[in-house]
């Protein structure tokens, strides 16, 4: 090829000539300029809200100390052993513990064959349990709420499935063991 390649600036400015049509290298460079032209002005809309980013960053707070809570009470544990039919179950009560914190979770079946989850975070020490972010993940969905002044939180109308609760405390994120309401939805 005799002529010189076009510079990126020439391509940006829209210069076209016979060389460009025949040159694969210039064609490739023109393509990234086009891609950036098309998508570029949209980039600011790909920016998630800063509060949201901070929240996600807080998942890793407290030196990545991901506290795994353990179940210390489960209302279903004895009953299942007795052979209760799964689909008859209407409620489940769990207490999970991580360090000095307790997490009470109550699942109740509602009339529309869904579940309402009521929970409470309590601390044996002076840790703050009000205004704490609580996330519940099920299947590929996520719902979020905050605890009230008593450390309570509510998730209405959940489907019958497995739930993963994450609590974002100042001192670190706590993950409760996954649990479900057994039986059909």
């Amino acid at each position: 090829m005799m002529e010189e390649h076009l510079s990126a600036a020439q391509l940006y400015d829209g210069e076209r000539n016979g060389h460009l049509e025949a040159c694969a290298e210039c064609g490739r460079r023109l393509s990234w300029i086009r891609v950036m032209r098309e998508g570029g002005s949209d980039e600011h809309r790909n920016e998630p809200p800063d509060d949201l980013v901070k929240q996600v960053v807080r998942l890793g707070a407290s030196k990545m100390r991901w506290l795994a809570a353990k179940i210390v009470f489960d209302s279903l544990a004895p009953r299942l052993n007795e052979g209760v039919r799964d689909s008859d179950l209407r409620a489940r009560h769990l207490i999970c513990r991580a360090g000095t914190l307790d997490f009470n979770v109550d699942l109740q079946r509602t009339k529309d064959y869904r579940f309402q989850m009521i929970g409470q975070v309590t601390a044996k020490t002076t840790e703050r349990v009000d205004g704490v972010e609580v996330w519940v993940q099920f299947n590929d969905r996520l719902r979020t709420t905050r605890t009230d002044e008593f450390g309570e939180f509510v998730f209405p109308r959940l489907p019958a499935t497995e739930y993963r609760i994450t609590i974002l405390l100042d001192q670190g994120s706590v993950m409760l063991p996954p649990f479900a309401m057994p039986g059909r939805g």
Binding site: Q55, V56, L59, W135, Q137, R141, L142, R143
Partner: peptide, 11 residues
């Protein structure tokens, strides 16, 4: 919904 996906992916 985009915010939900964002949180859920990072979790």
């Amino acid at each position: 919904d985009a915010m939900e996906v964002f949180q859920s992916v990072w979790l």
